[in-house]
């Protein structure tokens, strides 16, 4: 609730002066756990267009729709002086066959520790934390998860190379995440097989103009529950018409999820920046 109030205040304030201190498209979009990133990977960039003297607020909603499941997420981020990002994401994971919904809340903090995506010689580096709490933990418990809540820690490095390929701007991001989450935490944390693990995630994109980016992502996942949890992949195209809006569409390949094979499908995400 407090967060909501802060966001509405920021939104009201932003009508007078929206943050625009970054090159268009460079902050990325909103990933499914609420952080600035691609679609599934959190990036080193902090959300929105705030420079060191500005504050930015963003709201987003996303949907991933694969064969047997659907994930709906809405959330918000606040970026203070391009130094700290606070984020919250409300996830609703729908199991089509069982007509059942699992809800999870994710609270994130990320801080930029070095550099600037575009301007510094070395990549921008950020440290982040995501705290995840299940609101519906019956399925997680039934599958043998140890806990219904847990915390991910990650370090991310990103760089945008101006004019890298034949004059096109190229972005890459690498993230290492220490986590015990099963399927994002939707199936709880931990299990019989193992506890916390280090997972690697990567994204790369080419900006085809100021307003369009195409890219791919990869996210390694643990298999604590012994259900053959697969790594996730996607290929995306993002459209950034101005510094207030971006729309991202992606093709997802999520592999097997809780025994259901070959989960593939579409992803659509919209973020508003203030």
């Amino acid at each position: 609730m407090r967060i909501l109030i802060i966001f509405s205040l920021m939104w009201a304030g932003s009508i007078a002066h929206a943050a625009d201190g970054k090159l268009i498209a460079t902050p990325g979009v909103s990933q499914i756990e609420g952080s600035a990133g691609g679609g599934i990977v959190p990036w080193a960039q902090l959300a929105g267009y705030a420079s060191r003297d500005e504050i930015a607020g963003n709201v987003f909603c996303s949907r991933g729709d694969v064969s047997d499941y659907r994930l709906d997420v809405c959330g918000a981020q606040a970026n203070f002086y391009d130094r700290v990002e606070f984020s919250v994401a409300k996830q609703r994971f729908r199991i089509n066959a069982a007509d059942l919904t699992i809800r999870q809340d994710v609270f994130g903090i990320k801080t930029r520790v070095y550099g600037d995506l575009v301007y510094s010689r070395f990549p921008q580096v950020s440290l982040g934390v995501m705290h995840k709490r299940l609101r519906d933990d019956e399925i997680a418990n039934a599958l043998g998860a140890k806990r219904s809540h847990g915390t991910d820690f990650y370090v991310a490095a990103s760089k945008l190379h101006l004019g890298a390929f034949a004059g096109y701007n190229w972005l890459w991001n690498l993230t290492a995440r220490h986590t015990s989450a099963n399927e994002l935490g939707i199936l709880g944390h931990g299990g019989s097989d193992q506890g916390r693990r280090l997972q690697l995630e990567a994204s790369t994109a080419v900006l085809l103009g100021r307003h369009v980016a195409v890219g791919v992502e990869y996210r390694q996942k643990p298999d604590n529950l012994g259900l053959g949890e697969d790594d996730w992949k996607d290929i995306f195209v993002a459209w950034i018409p101005n510094k207030h809006l971006n729309v991202t569409a992606a093709w997802l390949d999520l592999g097997d999820i809780a025994g259901a094979k070959n989960q593939r499908g579409w992803y659509l995400s919209v973020t508003g920046n203030f």
């Binding site: 301007y119 510094s120 010689r121 101006l162 004019g163 034949a166 004059g167 096109y168 103009g209 100021r210």
Partner: peptide, 18 residues
């Protein structure tokens, strides 16, 4: 000026920001 040429000029100017 084409997008790709713009980026090449920006790439030369960006390191000066600091």
């Amino acid at each position: 000026v084409s997008h790709r040429v713009q980026n090449r000029l920006l790439a030369r100017l960006a390191p000066l920001r600091d």
